[in-house]
Simulated scan of single mutants.
Amino acid sequence: MDLNSLCYLGLGIISIILLVYICIKSDVRQALLTFMGMVGLGYIIEAVIYNFLSSYQYYPHIIKHEPIYDSALGAIASNALTLPVTATFLAAFRKNWLWAAFAIGLYAGIECLFLELHIYKHYWWKTYYTSIGLCFYFLLAKFLYHKLNRPLEGFFHTFCLYLIISPFSGSLQFIPIMLFSNRYYELGLFTNQAKDTTAFSTIFYLCASLVYVFMVKFLPLPQWVKYSVTGLCMYGATQLLRHVGILHSLVWWDTGYYIALSLLSLLLTEYICKSLHKGPLPAKI
């Protein structure tokens, strides 16, 4: 384990500790839903600027066999832990703009340090882009946390449900590819196979997440029918992508894993849907 790995793992461990502290000291339902929603928002932003526009690259030196997947793991660490945990902390404890400014300055400093240590690299991205983006990101976290203080309905309920379920679906869809090379995609967006796989994985999980939300919210069918249809949709999508030459499965368990993932994602979508319809638990006297 070298300096690169220690820096990324250190940030990850600190973020997990902070998340546990937030859940203990604040309303755990609001905190976790806000955290997951901000993860989802971060994933979508990263899909655009990182996956498709090649803004920067991470070097955590954890995945040795493929630099693109190693960089993707660094992106996941940033957008699934460090930034959403900080945003949730500021929202949950109602910190003012001075705290937000300090957090933005801290992240700008860490980014500059990582650039100096060559464990992170800009292409066209600039550090001040990060600072400007975090201003809006932290404000949205405060807005979301406030909204979750009461039951959600309508479009905002659907949007938050999608934000929360999509990173779960995306992470569990892509992590086996990074670690076990169980499949790759060949869409032709990029000449590098791993980059092409990363980009299409993003499209895949965003579309799959739409299906889960649609099944739960807009399809008036018995539960067993929904699960059957979801599994069949994943199986059908897998076979279609194979037939047209986009998907290449490399292990025997590939299809079964993604069908099981689709059913687990639907189950979690149902649970989150109900949770968003509920307000916070009454305070204990």
Rank of each mutant, 00 (worst) to 15 (best):
S201L: 11
H61S: 12
Y43W: 09
T158E: 01
P67N: 00
Y184E: 04
A260I: 04
Y21M: 09
A80Q: 05
L179E: 02
T230D: 11
F143R: 13
I14N: 05
S55D: 13
R29S: 08
T255Q: 11
I119K: 10
L261R: 05
D2T: 12
N51Q: 14
S209H: 14
I164W: 00
L6H: 05
I119V: 14
G236Q: 01
A199F: 07
K64Y: 04
L247V: 00
I110C: 01
L189M: 12
L210F: 13
I104G: 01
W253D: 08
P176L: 05
F204V: 14
V229S: 09
L98T: 06
S54E: 11
T230S: 13
V213H: 06
F102T: 09
L19N: 11
C273S: 15
M178I: 04
P176Y: 04
Y145D: 01
K217E: 14
W252G: 13
S169I: 12
L247Y: 00
T158R: 08
W125E: 07
L264S: 15
I104Q: 01
Y205V: 03
V216P: 09
F156M: 12
K64M: 12
T86I: 09
N79V: 10
Q173E: 02
F159G: 00
A92Y: 02
K278I: 01
E153K: 11
F190P: 01
I22N: 04
L163E: 05
I76D: 05
I16T: 07
I177C: 02
C273K: 12
L221T: 10
I45L: 15
V211L: 14
G170E: 02
